[in-house]
Design a binder for these strands. Structure first.
Length: 801
DNA sequence: CCGAATTTAATTTTT
DNA sequence: TTAAATTCGG
């Protein structure tokens, strides 16, 4: 029973739980991760379950990786003790490594541990071809995953190209948001129209329909689809559902307060095979084990809903169980923070109305008081933070830079602090902000890979067709995409049709041939290259690397290094996944976040948003920008439930701290560029008992860089005038131009081609001077040809018969 | 068709 | 302030 031995009563109850549902309410720092890993180890060691029967859902990829890591170590130690009766640390390195490798092969390899998105993307790689779409859309196993920016690009494209709307009137960002909302609530386009009645409901619904079709045409899925499609698939296909239901007998979910309705639906389908949880009785060798803390629910903007957690007991309470407490365990002992910090956290969160009653009980000493510093502006705030950290470092010989974190509400706040850190020469790392995989050069190379895996991915094709430069311009691309959309043929098939290209592209045809030949030659090597080697090949062969080297600027060098980093990421992926291929790597890249990047052991101060700090802990924590309108954010000031979420976010921030907590706020702040905004202290500060806080002297903010500028305001007004005098966008549709053509070919004309035989004109492209036509010949798809070059002759309809 | 120059809009939080 | 979009001259 070694996996139960070093746990407290409540933890033991949770870990030892065998069958049926269990809700674990786990306060911050109460050993929740420990409970999860020990439970998995326990299940395996006690032969309750085969590793392949276990599914563990984490909130980030990093958490998944850590869980695997800790589990492996746990099992390895256990193995060492049982087999050799020796403690793990007394074994030599070679031995240790060998045991870990055994554990990996026999156990951890077969576990499914990952985020909802990663897990269900994986499931779809098996079964997406069995999905039946209500509109008849379909996807193949090679599907691409579109991240938020890809998806937004697609929406933009549809708004401007297909619907011919002004993106200023119908904003792509908002439109994308409404689509996401529809997907998260499982609405059809018609339902979306009703929900958004009066707010562009009709348009939104139309856009939603087109967006879904466009995704299918690209054989691509967005983040929401990765959850929504599996729900529908499991609902509609009994065989598929049975398979996964019998496969995953023990399901564990971390950060359960941040699941959304779709994710909950997935859990229910897998656990009870479609039966209502209340009526489900077959819990033999089966369990669902969810761990969460409603007070740490901070993702409602992503449709997370902590009432799912609060409803767990009622939902899963079986008729035979009279006491619903039987399926709930509370972990309230906090092992992380000093009692001062805990008191502050508890008092703060008590101001929330919607919550499960829960108090964190301290197990540690009182510790030092919380220190609050008022500053003049964000620059002196940054200086004050650095001052504080340097003092802390100097006074505590056991505290290193790596033990400290600076947390803020918005990513933009990091800049001022970074500048100060640089000025003082303090090593630091920023996590979050722009994702590694969002960098341009990375997205470019990944677009090559995506296209190679999935030829229908026109979005990726368009991204790289002229990157690096191949002399293919805007007009050419427009003609090609017009042809593709009007004929309903994937862009790839247009660009690989030599005749069509010659006809449509004119003098950029050469560049296009160059491009298609490149892709086709790379395609031949796709199957027998590992991801890392293949990426290297792509970078070299497409000329991207050479272009960066030729540029010889500092920026280009940085890009080159990022690309090298991409190769390294692929190598790491290969190490972690035995059967790794390019499409697997692409999926992991699409779902990776910046917070996932491997912990460098370097001794550096960590900067990040409060959101990404969830699940972490630091001996010393600074929270900056505690001002009304910033934290809590201005959008939540008039919305009580949004304010409660901000408070939970603050609670998360405070409970990250083990020993020392420093709070900061400024009297005024430059939001962007110039203008100063006066700021009042955050309401949260007043919710922490005064006796826990030691106020600092206001730091004199004699920093330089202080210039009163009236200029920006004037230029701003000038710009406004410019905008208003700007011409309205033209709404003329391309069909007007087509109707204008004077001679020769019209849609419906019949013709005869020397080698293709008889055909009928279906589409016209380009204007009079440079005209191409699409012809449907008997027994083949439409061909695009140049009427002046092609060996064709017009024929009358009578001649046809 | 390309790159430089100009202008414009933007701040939550992330899988 | 900066990143991205748009315009303009070669």
């Amino acid at each position: 029973m070694s996996f139960l031995s070093d746990l407290n009563k409540a933890q033991q109850k949770a870990v030892g739980h065998t069958n049926g549902p269990l809700l674990v309410i786990a306060g911050a720092g109460s050993g929740k991760t420990k409970a999860l890993t020990h439970r998995v180890a326990h299940l395996i060691a006690e032969r309750e379950a085969d590793p392949s029967n276990i599914l563990a859902v984490t909130f980030t990829n990093k958490a998944a990786r850590e869980m695997k890591e800790r589990l492996e170590l746990l099992l390895a130690k256990n193995y060492a003790e049982n087999k050799y009766a020796q403690s793990w640390s007394s074994l030599d390195q070679v031995h240790q490594r060998q045991i870990r490798s055994n554990i990996y092969q026999s156990t951890t390899k077969d576990l499914w541990i990952g985020t909802f998105h990663a897990i269900f993307a994986r499931l779809l790689r098996f079964d997406i071809d069995k999905y039946l779409d209500p509109e008849g859309l379909s996807w193949t196993k090679q599907f691409s995953i579109y991240d938020e920016s890809d998806s937004l690009n697609l929406v933009k494209e549809i708004i401007t190209q297909e619907l011919q709307l002004d993106p200023k009137r119908f904003e792509p960002k908002k439109a994308r948001w409404s689509i996401s909302k529809a997907k998260n609530y499982g609405w059809t386009a018609d339902q979306l129209e009703k929900e958004f009645e009066g707010h562009n409901g009709k348009l939104s619904a139309e856009l939603y329909r087109r967006y879904r079709r466009a995704l299918a045409a690209n054989n691509a899925l967005d983040f929401d689809d990765l959850l929504l499609l599996p729900v529908q698939l499991l609902q509609q296909n009994e065989a598929v559902r049975n398979y996964w239901h019998s496969r995953f007998r023990h399901i564990l979910v971390d950060e359960y307060q941040d699941t959304n309705r779709t994710q909950y639906e997935l859990l229910k389908l897998l656990t009870t095979n479609g039966v209502s949880p209340k009526n489900y009785t077959n819990w033999k060798n089966r369990s669902i084990f969810v761990v969460g803390d409603a007070d740490q629910s901070i993702y409602s903007f992503r449709a997370a809903d902590f009432t799912i957690l609060m409803g767990f007991q009622d939902d899963f309470k079986n008729h035979s169980q009279e006491n619903k407490d039987k399926i709930m365990v509370k972990l309230e002992d906090n092992y992380r923070s000093t009692s001062t910090i805990l008191k502050a956290a508890n008092s703060l969160i008590e101001n929330n109305k919607e919550r499960i009653d829960k108090v964190l009980k301290a197990t540690r000493e009182e510790g030092e008081l919380i220190k609050l510093t008022r500053c003049d502006d964000e620059i002196s705030e940054a200086e004050a933070v650095i001052h504080r950290l340097r003092l802390t470092e100097a006074n505590n010989y056991n505290l290193k830079w790596g033990d400290m974190a600076i947390l803020y509400r918005t990513n933009a706040q990091s800049r001022a602090i970074e500048e100060s850190l640089v000025r003082w020469g303090i090593p630091y790392v920023v996590v979050g902000g722009l994702r590694f995989y969002d960098r341009r050069e990375i997205k470019d190379i990944l677009a090559y890979l995506k296209l190679l895996v999935n030829k229908n991915d026109s979005l990726s094709l368009l991204r790289i067709i002229n990157v690096p430069r191949r002399g293919i311009g805007k007009t050419t691309i427009q003609r090609l995409t017009d042809a593709s959309s009007q004929l309903g043929i994937p862009l790839w098939e247009i660009v690989t049709d030599t005749e069509a290209v010659r006809s449509l592209a004119g003098r950029s045809a050469k560049g296009i041939f160059e491009f298609t030949q490149l892709i086709e030659s790379l395609d031949k090597e796709l199957i027998n290259s590992s991801p890392s080697i293949f990426i290297q090949k792509v970078m070299e062969r497409c000329g991207y690397l050479n272009e960066l080297i030729a540029e010889a600027t500092e920026e280009a060098e940085e890009r080159r290094q990022n690309l090298q980093e991409l190769v390294n990421a692929a190598i790491q992926f290969e190490d972690e996944n035995e059967e790794s291929d390019v499409s697997g790597f692409l999926a992991s890249a699409a779902l990776a976040s910046d917070a996932d990047k491997k912990d460098t052991e370097a001794d550096r101060v960590t900067l990040m948003t409060l959101h990404s700090s969830k699940g972490l802990e630091f001996p010393a924590v600074c929270i900056v920008g505690l001002e009304q309108g910033l934290f809590p954010g201005y959008r939540s000031l008039s919305d009580p439930s949004a304010l409660e979420e901000e408070r939970r976010l603050c609670y998360v921030g405070i409970t990250r701290a083990k020993e020392q907590l420093f709070l900061f706020h400024a009297n005024e702040r430059r939001l962007w560029g110039g203008m100063r905004e006066p700021a009042v202290p955050s309401i949260f500060l007043s919710e922490i008992p005064e006796e826990l806080i030691k106020g600092d002297l206001p730091l004199s903010g004699g920093t330089s860089l202080r210039r009163q500028k009236n200029l920006p305001r004037l230029t701003r007004i000038d710009r406004k005038e410019n905008t208003s005098s700007k011409k309205e966008r033209s709404f003329s549709s391309p069909s007007n131009a087509i109707r204008r053509q004077s001679k020769e070919w019209n849609v419906g004309d019949h013709l005869i081609h020397n080698s293709f035989g008889k055909g009928v004109v279906t589409h016209l492209f380009g204007s009079n001077e440079r005209r191409s036509i699409a012809v449907k010949f008997d027994g083949m798809g439409p061909k695009i040809i140049d009427p002046r070059l092609a060996p064709i002759e017009s024929i009358n309809e009578e001649q046809l018969s």
